[in-house]
Amino acid sequence: MSRIVHLAVKVNDLEEATKFYTEVFGFTEVKTGRNREHISRHMTDGHIDFTLMQYDSEDSHEATIAGEGPRLHHWGVTVDDQELAAEKIKQYGGTILSAKGEGALKFRAPDGTIAEVVKPGRYNEK
Rank of each mutant, 00 (worst) to 15 (best):
I65H: 04
K19T: 09
V30Y: 08
E23S: 13
A8R: 02
F20H: 05
S60P: 09
F27T: 00
V11T: 00
M43V: 05
A8M: 12
I65W: 04
T64F: 05
M43C: 04
P70N: 08
G69F: 02
D13M: 07
N12Q: 12
R36Y: 13
M53H: 11
H38L: 14
T22L: 07
E68F: 06
E15W: 10
E23R: 08
M43G: 00
G33K: 10
K31M: 14
R41D: 07
V9Y: 15
L14Y: 07
E15R: 13
Y21L: 09
V9K: 09
L14E: 04
E58H: 12
T44E: 09
A66K: 01
Y55C: 10
V30G: 03
F25D: 01
E68Q: 13
G33V: 07
T51N: 10
R36D: 15
G26M: 07
T28S: 05
T28P: 00
A66C: 06
A63F: 02
G26K: 01
H42L: 12
E15H: 12
A17T: 02
G46P: 03
S60E: 12
R71S: 12
T22R: 08
T32Q: 14
K10Y: 06
T18N: 13
D13F: 10
T18H: 14
R71V: 04
V24D: 00
T64R: 15
E16W: 11
D45G: 11
R71F: 02
I48W: 12
V24F: 00
D59G: 13
F20Y: 07
A17F: 04
F50D: 01
E29C: 09
D45P: 08
F25C: 08
F50L: 10
T51Q: 11
D13E: 09
V30A: 05
E15Y: 11
R41I: 04
T32A: 13
P70M: 11
V24Q: 00
